[in-house]
Write a protein that binds this DNA or RNA. Sequence first.
DNA 1: TTGACACCTGCAACTAAGTTGCATTACACT
DNA 2: AGTGTAATGCAACTTAGTTGCAGGTGTCAA
Lengths: 142, 142
Amino acid sequence: MDTELDRILSEITGRGFRLTRVRRAVVEVFLQRGLPLSAADVIAALRPGNSSINKTTIYRELAFLEERGIIKEIRFLHERVKRYELAGGEHHHHLICVKCRKVEDIVLEGDLEEEEQRILESTGFRVLNHSLEFVGLCQGCR
Amino acid sequence: MDTELDRILSEITGRGFRLTRVRRAVVEVFLQRGLPLSAADVIAALRPGNSSINKTTIYRELAFLEERGIIKEIRFLHERVKRYELAGGEHHHHLICVKCRKVEDIVLEGDLEEEEQRILESTGFRVLNHSLEFVGLCQGCR
DNA sequence: TTGACACCTGCAACTAAGTTGCATTACACT
DNA sequence: AGTGTAATGCAACTTAGTTGCAGGTGTCAA
């Protein structure tokens, strides 16, 4: 876990960027939570220890980490807020419980490769990326 | 095409709701465009002929049509606005071109039934709904 | 055809999420 | 320790959508 933190931090410094108090804290929050977080989530997570963080800083930090490919943006259906999760893990999707709002990761068996190939052949559209999420009831809420 | 309009309008009146100027106009816009529209799109489409439509009315009308299952909400990755499209058509997904922003409908061959069954078995999560979109380059932009 | 009532509409003011400009602070390197 | 640039904080702004309320209009019954 901490090796993962070190890996990310040295990826940042290795490319000549500064390792600031806020930057380190934001990355740590993503590692601790392991789930998609909004700017508000990050701010709430940092508030207890660090009361003076500004929302502008967090928004800019999230943009910074996204541009460097350390986190990536995701949006959930029917939600207005941007969320981010750590990039670089295994390719997965999300299960979102409509009742308790819990989010789980899911790795599909057959991924969408064949569908994307078929789309290219039938329409000429070259898929670069897809977004897939499942909405329903988690085990506890059924 | 007009039979489809009639079908929707009589679905509205049949359930005891009024058929107003704005309501009819909004449904017509969705039928004409046949693609996901934001509130701003609808307003822009109605402005030429009908300069006095208010954005509040459009937002409320979209909520009305959604509650009655006539349109449904969709959100595209990296977009902040809500979009809606007519419900009731064949189950499909969207291809969104990153370059020209054009949107095409796509019907998948094998749909996600088996995956959803597998998810239920392995995690206990009952999928009610999914959202899937493909981002890439359309034939014209490649 | 008219009247009445509930639904619909428009306006203004508000909220939430995110963004921008600018002055100040603090990393990291010498 | 000093310096330059990246990072930060504050305030003001933007965009998308929402709410309260007063007034208007479609529909149904008489």
